[in-house]
Write a protein that binds this DNA or RNA. Sequence first.
DNA 1: GAATTTACTTCAAAACTTGAAGTAAATTTC
DNA 2: GAAATTTACTTCAAGTTTTGAAGTAAATTC
Lengths: 189, 189
Amino acid sequence: MTQGLLHPSMGLEDAVLLRNGGDRLHVVPDEPRRNQHSDGPQVSCFDLARLLDRSSRRFSGLVSAELTRLGVDDIGPAQVMVLLAIGDAELSVGELLDRGNYVGSNISYYLKQLTDGDYIARVTSQRDKRSARIRLTERGKQLCADLRDAAKAFERTFCGEQDLRDLATAFQALHRLELVWANAARYGV
Amino acid sequence: MTQGLLHPSMGLEDAVLLRNGGDRLHVVPDEPRRNQHSDGPQVSCFDLARLLDRSSRRFSGLVSAELTRLGVDDIGPAQVMVLLAIGDAELSVGELLDRGNYVGSNISYYLKQLTDGDYIARVTSQRDKRSARIRLTERGKQLCADLRDAAKAFERTFCGEQDLRDLATAFQALHRLELVWANAARYGV
DNA sequence: GAATTTACTTCAAAACTTGAAGTAAATTTC
DNA sequence: GAAATTTACTTCAAGTTTTGAAGTAAATTC
């Protein structure tokens, strides 16, 4: 039984959390810092996938908390992600779909909630009346701005230089992997 | 309005997919390869979060497809993740919870399905009769093995050296970020 | 101008998540 | 050593999210 790729019963995921007397939190790496390219213990795509899930959930929790703090209770983190995906652009539902996260009926469902909550405005496109153009309302923009501010504050409080680099590193590496997975889904598999 | 952290309307996520005549797929990086530490365009945690979601979904899709191919139709990718989280270990529900992904009632729900499908066996612990010990059945082990094989085959077909490095890189960076997020959730925020 | 395709939306069923409440065993407290 | 508390789960009911099939109306193609 091909053992090897999958974790050899050693929890790759155990967190080492410490509080250091003062008011600032530190994450203590168990090793000085691995050489960027000697990939350490074998990592399978399943390991990564579980970490993806876990991180996603964790982050959603933070966004939820922030929404509560902001007094927003008609939408959740999932809807927020849609808002952020729209950003400053004015785009059609199709373009939003191309941005990747969702399937059609799903985004309709979110858009309905966001429209009801007055976070986005939808106007039927003049050139193509089938297609709706979507953009943030003032309320939507305000929420995004508030969240960005919260994220900034969060970074100042909890993140060091290395954490910010990790953010970019994770993004780049994951971005490439996603292309591979998308490719696979598209052709053969 | 604090613009900057959030995508300046340029889709960081557009995929560049090519098919190159032959039977092998390539992902074409738009630059030779960024210096590992000059983090390129600003990436916010929201950008990463959306990518996390997207990648997760994408990967689940691949697992789903593989399950279908294997003729497994009583469980989905979510349950598979639980199986893989258990691995070769025999552990209690509590330990599984500590491995991080789920909340209590949630894992009960999955464990029930996995028990019904005969993928896992649960025995009441003798030392502490409240606690159930969980392990994979032969069927569960077989499925995990099949999936690992599929992943191997997948890697051979679709991944280059760089992709494998990305896997490890993403894992490490994300792992650290998750600690930060977990920390934040635990104290203050 | 009929047939097809595109760009969505709606609906209903399934899957998943959450939180509150429940159960039974272990531990602590008095 | 019995009562109270805590631990280790499970169950339940009420959401929320996801999926896929079907629908609608505008645009395109034939």
